[in-house]
Design a binder for these strands. Structure first.
Lengths: 204, 204
DNA sequence: ACCTGAACACCGTTCAAGT
DNA sequence: ACCTGAACACCGTTCAAGT
């Protein structure tokens, strides 16, 4: 049984398997992942250093699934930036159960550099100053990550107590969808606002 | 030893203790919390239903520490909204080690309703439509939560590899602070942009 | 009502042994 | 090099027993 002639595991399989487990169970455990991959838990440690690295592999797998060509940087910068943000959040939306694992420690990983490079070029070409680029990217990314977490947030409940103590909140909630369009609407609103605000930050 | 005449524990003490543990250790375990409170782990279960509820108590404690009067809704709506966002994020910044625990499942909890009510009133008075209020609040909140996580994000490293493969990114990183001002700058930039964009969404 | 101490199922990780 | 199985320290939670 030990040492199969063709390896049962590789990092790619581990990342993809972990993503499936998190998707299905909303959490990740090493025994569950090992079971999914048909292997003993200890086998994993021949390929990764530990749990943290597995989560990093999940992010990498997500990036590979999404692909770098989900958005087109040759369009006007506002459209391209919007497409980037939507594709970024869309990748999370495909794996809601994994979001808390993935969004918590963002994306300093090397395989993200290619993506950042394209966005940085986009913004520099658009006329933003070099010192503006990372703050803009970080700000948009913070919004995307927060919005990804919002996808799995518990709904705000309007009890009768709330209605009396919080009339304005209740009025607002009455005009807010309670299904998954709520998070969509919030994302659309914030994204539009950010892009408008970015435009106003463009020099001259 | 059992059944002291005056209780050793209450929910307030548990929330505050959990916040201290998470601050110090960057994580929360029940044994560590029990030790901090001078009590056996099982004692906690007489006051809370489990780990999840302890984390909820941490959020409540954070809200109590911050206080509802950190911002003044009587000012112009843009200033008041900015102050709210800053005070909200500031509360997280005071407990960086606890941020991943606190920011992951936001704030549907009842003790947050009072805060939402004030922001909702603010926006309605400013002239936003009832249907706009929650999307605006959610969008700003998503940005605040993402920015809170950004406080504890690992820094982006510029290796020599990166420099050759990603010239635009490197140029941008050269003009970006590497210390804690990086996250500040991103937050300021995004917040300013959001407020500008919100203004543009105001009817008529 | 509120705490202790023992117990349980489970987790992440290590390591010697096998091919 | 790559897997298994046993082992370890640790975790969250339950529960009977004590006041």
């Amino acid at each position: 049984m030990a040492r199969p002639r063709t390896p049962l595991l590789d990092r790619r399989r581990i990342g993809a398997g972990a993503l499936r487990i998190a998707d299905e169970q909303g959490a990740l455990s090493i025994p569950a992942l090992a079971r999914e991959l048909g292997v003993a838990p200890s086998a994993l440690y021949h390929h990764v250093s530990g749990r943290e690295e597995i989560i990093s592999l999940m992010r990498e797998e997500l990036a590979l699934e999404t692909g770098p060509d989900d958005w087109d940087p040759s369009r006007p910068w506002e459209q391209a930036l919007e497409a980037w943000a939507r594709s970024y959040r869309g990748a999370f939306a495909t794996h809601p159960g994994a979001v808390p694992l993935l969004a918590t420690a963002p994306l300093a990983e090397p395989f993200m550099h290619a993506m950042y490079e394209r966005v940085a070029e986009l913004l520099l070409t658009a006329g933003f100053g070099a010192g503006q680029v990372m703050p803009l990217i970080n700000a948009l990314e913070n919004f995307v990550l927060g919005s990804a977490l919002d996808l799995v947030a518990p709904p705000v409940m309007v009890s009768d107590v709330t209605r009396e103590a919080a009339p304005h909140l209740s009025a607002a909630l009455d005009d807010t969808p309670t299904d998954n369009r709520r998070a969509e609407l919030a994302f659309d609103t914030g994204l539009r606002a950010l892009l408008t605000g970015f435009r106003a930050l463009l020099p001259r």
